[in-house]
Design a protein around this nucleic acid. Structure first.
Length: 559
RNA sequence: UGGGGUGUCGCCAAGUGGCCUAAGGCACCGGAUUUUGAUUCCGGCAUUCGAAGGUUCGAAUCCUUCCACCCCAGCCA
């Protein structure tokens, strides 16, 4: 159940007051890039509100710029919306409305509120005025309706070169709202559209297209971000001036969707700008749009984030009219919360350190039956083998440990979780003093968490039997940037975190992972949550990604 | 400087004249339980709501002024 916020209140009131019988929303991406966390907020808002209030939500591609859009993006967007767990009522494309849009443009010309201009881009900028000075009318503003109609028809017919003419709304060149200074409605562009092909050489602008698309689809509430607040006046102007008697659903009468704006949310240490994302991909700073360090939806998916965790995150950050900067821990908390309840526990050793248990008989082994989840018995149990040689993590051993280090050190005793307590008797090092191997003895009377003399063993570490272990490559990710707001810098490339990816090529995993399915999520006990990499994992080579670490109080204490 | 917005705890965010000496989440700090230094659990964490005035018996909520920040001058969306 999603939270209350001002947009929801508006929608609920509109139903309560009888303004609408239902809510109809839409998520309107332009297929010119991959979806990221910012879009997830909009998706959850639009689809979530529709389903919460018993309404509908369309997925509509705002595809009016043939030069930037591509089917590859559209396909990915459809998949990401579905992956997030939402179903659209209708799958729509603004490009499917090009004929209607053209008709409405002709209508505006006929009413004398749109004209064909032939100022070039530079002149138009001059005529537009500035923030503080009013603009001035184009010398072509007062053509006759007949001439405008003729010119517009010929624009469509391809008689003019690109940039020669534009269709403009005749509003007010001295408006303090610059959006209203005779905005362009159509421009000439000889580009092949990824869906419409070469049918058109004139393309409608966003401000003209979006409001009409909403009206055609019977959208009741058109949510968008804050930067479109000024555009709302134009949104309303266009809908006031066109003559739409019946929408695509057969509903009749003056149908006015309402645009309402909300604030964007940015995540610390990330970048959302499509331009910058493209640069990261193209220059090879990341492996692709689905690099697990990116907060694109495909990246988060590959990283191991669940759709639920992202929906929860979006609910948690709320919806207001304020642009916000969200701390990374909020996202991490969302995925930890989901995986804590659902992930199977297993043992995985990222930096293996061999331990030989000298008093355990050679060639023998035994298995321990352990729970897959400490609190959820329904998740069952599994067997883990134990033998004379095991691997523990290098981080769980210190040559000269401080008093609060509850792990292994020379002469110290720890429990191998679910197994026996071992004591470190000997440390084998190389010439440089690197620890190569440990020689330990185990206490046979310490199985099942017991000790014969009642002594408490504070330290508990994870391990995996050397002979039974699976080899794997484990990838550990950290934030992509060293600066919480990399987008604020022009040189965001220099802010990249050189340690954002650490590869552990020789990780050792417990044998049960061999039966893992591609979408399974695991908690490597005491380490973090992991998933199989969707591209590089295979039966012959296990490749796992760390989604997020476990909370690590020790890491804080030891600093 | 014209227009449009926003300002409540480190980060989000409830709250729309009295039950606010201001929910909740994240973060942080204690402490309990724990064969994960995880989880869970308990406790702490804004006498203050951008600032200053004013209205009122009473304001974060109303008024005035001021300050800060964001957006708008693409034939992008």
């Amino acid at each position: 159940m999603s939270k209350n916020h001002f947009l929801r209140s508006i929608a609920e009131n509109d139903i309560k007051n009888g303004k609408h019988d239902y809510v109809y929303t839409r998520f309107p991406p332009e297929p010119n890039g991959y979806l990221h966390l910012g879009h997830a907020k909009s998706i959850c808002l639009n689809f979530g509100m529709a389903s919460d209030l018993g309404g509908k939500c369309n997925l509509r591609f705002d595809d009016t710029n043939p030069e930037k859009e591509d089917e590859e993006y559209a396909e990915s967007i459809r998949q990401s919306v579905e992956w997030l767990g939402f179903q659209w009522d209708k799958l729509c494309y603004a490009s499917d409305y090009y004929d209607q849009l053209y008709t409405f443009a002709v209508q505006l010309i006929s009413k004398g509120v749109a004209y064909v201009d032939e100022l070039n881009a530079e002149q138009m900028r001059e005529y537009r005025g500035t923030l503080t000075e009013p603009g001035k009318n184009s010398p072509y503003r007062d053509r006759s309706i007949e001439e405008n109609l003729d010119l517009f028809t010929r624009m469509k017919a391809g008689e003019f070169e690109e940039g020669k003419y534009t269709l403009r709304a005749k509003i007010d060149m001295s408006s303090p709202n610059i959006t209203l200074r005779d905005p362009i409605l159509y421009r000439i562009r000889y580009a092949t559209h990824y869906r419409a092909g070469d049918k058109w050489c004139i393309y409608p602008m966003y401000d003209f297209t979006h409001c009409i698309s909403d009206a055609l689809e019977g959208i009741t509430h058109s949510f968008c971000t804050l930067e479109f607040q000024d555009n709302r006046a134009l949104y309303d102007w266009v809908l006031e001036h066109i003559d739409l008697q019946e929408n695509l659903n057969g509903e009749k009468g003056k149908l006015m969707p309402r645009q309402i704006e909300f604030g964007r949310s940015n995540l610390e240490y990330t970048i959302a700008s499509k331009r910058k994302l493209i640069q990261l991909v193209n220059e090879g700073h990341v492996s692709g749009w689905d690099d697990p360090r990116l907060t694109t939806l495909v990246g988060l998916k590959r990283r191991g984030y669940t759709p639920k965790s992202i929906r929860d995150f979006c609910e948690e950050i709320g919806v207001t009219k304020k642009d916000s900067v969200i701390e990374m821990t909020v996202l991490e908390n969302a995925i930890r919360h989901d995986l804590e309840a659902s992930a199977k526990r297993v043992f995985g050793v990222l930096k293996p350190l061999k331990v030989v248990i000298t008093n355990y008989p050679k060639g023998e082994s035994e298995t321990f039956t352990v729970k897959n989840h400490p609190k959820d018995d329904d998740m069952g149990t599994r067997e883990i083998p134990f033998a004379r040689e095991v691997y523990i993590d290098h981080d769980d051993f210190m040559m000269d440990p401080p008093k609060k280090f509850f792990r292994l050190g020379p002469g110290r005793e720890v429990r191998l979780r679910y197994g026996y307590a071992i004591t470190c008797n000997e440390v084998i090092q190389d010439d440089q003093g690197n620890v190569l191997e440990l020689r330990c003895t185990y206490d046979p009377l310490t199985a099942k968490g017991q000790t014969a003399d009642g002594r408490k063993i504070k330290g508990i570490i994870h391990w995996v039997s050397a002979d039974h272990a699976l080899d794997a490559e484990v990838r550990v990710y950290d934030r992509l940037y060293t600066d919480p707001n990399p987008g604020a810098s022009d040189d965001f490339i220099s802010l990249l975190n050189p340690d954002s990816l650490k590869v552990y090529p020789d990780a050792k995993l417990e044998p049960s992972l061999a039966e893992g399915r591609q979408n399974d999520r695991y908690q490597f006990e005491r380490v973090g949550y992991f998933c199989f990499d969707e591209k590089d994992n295979s039966a012959s080579k296990l490749v796992m990604n760390r989604t997020v670490s476990l909370r690590d109080t020790w890491a804080k204490v030891s600093k």
